[in-house]
Amino acid sequence: MKLATRRPETLWRWISVRMIALAVIALAVVGGGMWYRFAMWNSKMREAIPEPVRQELDALEAAPGENRARLRQIYGEYLYGDYFAPEMVREDMLIFAALVMIALPLIIAGGVWVSLRLSRQLGAVAVSACAISRGDFSSRASLVAHTPPALQNLTINFNHMAERLQRYDREQQESSAVIAHELRTPLTAAIGRLQGILDGVFPTEPAQLEVLMRQLRQLNRLTEDLHLLSMANAGQLDLSLNEFTLSALCKERLAWAAKTLEALMMRVELHIPERLMLLADRDRIGQLLSIVIDNTLRYATTGQELVLRAHVQHGELILLAEDRGPGFAPEHLDRVCERFWRAEYSRSRHAGGSGLGLSIAVAICAAHGGALTVHNRSGGGARIRIRLPLRFTVR
Results as ranks from 00 to 15, higher is better:
Tyr168Met: 07
Ile191Lys: 12
Asp169Gly: 10
Leu165Gly: 02
Leu194Met: 14
Leu212Cys: 09
Glu182Leu: 13
Ala207Thr: 09
Leu183Cys: 05
Asp199Ala: 11
Thr185Phe: 14
Arg170Met: 04
Ala189Asn: 14
Leu194His: 06
Ala180Ser: 05
Gln173Asp: 07
Gly192Asn: 09
Gln218Ile: 03
Glu174Trp: 01
Arg214His: 08
Leu183Arg: 13
Arg214Pro: 00
Gln195Tyr: 15
Glu210Thr: 05
Arg164Gly: 03
Gly196Ser: 12
Ser175Asp: 09
Ala207Cys: 03
Gly196Phe: 08
Gln218Leu: 07
Arg193Asn: 14
Phe202Tyr: 15
Arg170Ser: 05
Glu182Gly: 01
Ala180Phe: 02
Leu187His: 05
Thr188Asp: 15
Asp199Gln: 13
Ala189Pro: 02
Val211Trp: 10
Ala207Glu: 08
Met213Thr: 13
Gln208Pro: 02
His181Ser: 10
Arg184Ser: 12
Arg164Leu: 11
Asp199His: 11
Ser175Asn: 07
Gly200Leu: 02
Pro186Thr: 02
Tyr168Pro: 00
Phe202Gly: 00
Arg193Pro: 00
Leu212Pro: 03
Ile197Asn: 04
Arg167His: 02
Leu209His: 13
Gln208Lys: 06
Ala189Thr: 07
Val201Ile: 15
His181Met: 11
Gly200Trp: 02
Arg193Ile: 07
Glu210His: 15
Asp169Lys: 04
Asp169Asn: 12
Arg170Gly: 10
Arg193Leu: 14
Arg193Val: 06
Gln195Phe: 15
Arg167Thr: 03
Leu187Cys: 03
Gln215Ser: 07
Val178Asn: 14
Leu198His: 07
Leu183Asn: 05
Glu174Asn: 10
Arg164Trp: 11
Tyr168Thr: 10
Arg167Ala: 04
Leu165Asn: 06
Arg193Glu: 10
Leu183Tyr: 01
Leu165Ile: 13
Leu165Thr: 08
Gln195Leu: 15
Asp199Leu: 14
Tyr168Val: 10
Leu216Asp: 12
Gln166Trp: 08
Met213Pro: 04
Ala180Lys: 06
Ala177Arg: 05
Tyr168Phe: 08
Glu210Trp: 04
Gln173Arg: 13
Gln195Thr: 14
Val178Ile: 06
Gln173Asn: 09
Gln173Tyr: 06
Val201Glu: 15
Leu216Val: 12
Arg214Leu: 13
Met213Arg: 15
Ala190Gln: 09
Val178Thr: 09
Ile191Gln: 11
Ala162Met: 01
Arg184Met: 06
Gln166Thr: 00
Thr185Glu: 15
